[in-house]
Design a protein around this nucleic acid. Structure first.
Lengths: 212, 212
DNA sequence: GCGGCGATGTATCGGACCGATACATCGCAC
DNA sequence: GTGCGATGTATCGGTCCGATACATCGCCGC
């Protein structure tokens, strides 16, 4: 999952580790707390070894002013390669079981702007199915094993069930929008009256396909 | 976390691995999908090595009927020890940072019936604080970096923000109930009208202590 | 009666990711 | 001029997961 997220972000622009982590946190903040360096750096190394990314030279110009006072270990900027872009496209399109768990779905969703509509639909429906299963499991427990469980455990189940129902409804909306070819859940008509931008492309971006 | 959950469950009754997993899944179904055997068995081994649990003899009576046809590798029943109970009490009472992440909080909450009120309150408030921080982070991104992000990413943030707000409200309710000495979100109006507040367990039954 | 097959049951292995930790540099406030 | 928080790279041990392997039990169809 980290691999996918990194390739996705580097596709937007080259970055060094620290920056990558910040962007990752901003983009996936709704999903996971913050990526750990203990995952990030080894993954970068792995990606580099596989040839999906390369180290880019830091200091584009105006460098050389302080050439080699200390050994200068500073920032290492990573850049995606052509193979990396291919890899990203492949990862984003293929959906395994891990695509539908909380983290996997979140990462895929975060890059929906770079995903074709058929895949988006497939992923949304797969996720819905998975959440529906979880929901049924919780309902079963609440219906059949309620007397075995204490009030706190039951409350936890209820809260979880509620979250499932809510997410299914959210997904339904997204699926409906997707089928009608509109952007996700039109922001709001009322808020911030002077909202220019009228949701520029029906589905966002997506003109990004191979224009080198 | 697994350690805590296992000790908690074995406190209710001895179990073998498979059963443990099922109970774990029922109790924590709202939190995590299903515990993996790849975590469960090594953890059991670790707990046993530490002396918190022991293997109990299977086949309480009426055994011996089929003594040793095959080498009989069947079920291994685990049982909590006195030290294990102490360990559980210690783990349940002390709250580190991991107590407030999704999984940690869920496990602690699932055993609130075995947790004293002061600790319950402390954990609920710690969790609320953490979710409030996540919420603020999401609001910041939505307010300050909205134009940098595509419509799907924004939708993800909105959904996450909504979930945060909802959970904070849920926690507020639980905290209020806790302070007033009532059980969580009154289960049913029909059950147990006369509620003795100050007596040890205002919450649920919990008469399950030591009945061999 | 017997053959398959799904549920029950124990177990290991490689890999992903986390949390703690270490260490070095930069800018700036005091 | 110095401390200190932000920036920045990196490793290590540990937890947990997913895939896999394998053995037994009960029951159903034939």
């Amino acid at each position: 999952m980290l691999e996918l997220a990194i390739l996705g972000l580097l596709q937007e622009s080259p970055m060094h580790g620290y920056e990558l982590r910040k962007e990752l946190t901003a983009k996936l903040g709704a999903i996971r707390a913050a990526i750990s360096y203990g995952s990030l750096y080894p993954t970068l190394r792995r990606l580099q070894a596989s040839g999906w990314i390369t180290e880019a030279a830091e200091t584009p110009a105006t460098a050389e002013e302080v050439p080699a006072l200390t050994s200068r270990r500073g920032r290492v900027v990573y850049k995606i390669t052509a193979e990396g872009k291919e890899r990203f496209a492949q990862l984003i399109a293929q959906a395994g079981p891990e695509t539908y768990d909380d983290t996997g779905f979140g990462v895929h969703f975060a890059f929906f702007a770079r995903t074709d509509q058929a895949t988006r639909l497939r992923i949304l429906e797969g996720r819905r199915r998975k959440i529906e299963e979880r929901r049924e499991g919780l309902r079963d427990v609440l219906a059949r094993a309620a007397e075995r469980l204490d009030a706190y455990t039951l409350e936890l189940q209820r809260h979880g069930l509620d979250a499932c129902e809510r997410e299914v409804r959210w997904l339904e909306e997204l699926i409906a929008n997707e089928r009608s070819g509109r952007a996700p859940t039109v922001p709001e008509p009322g808020t911030a009256g002077g909202r220019r931008e009228d949701t520029s492309p029906p589905p966002p971006g997506e003109s990004r396909t191979e224009r080198p």
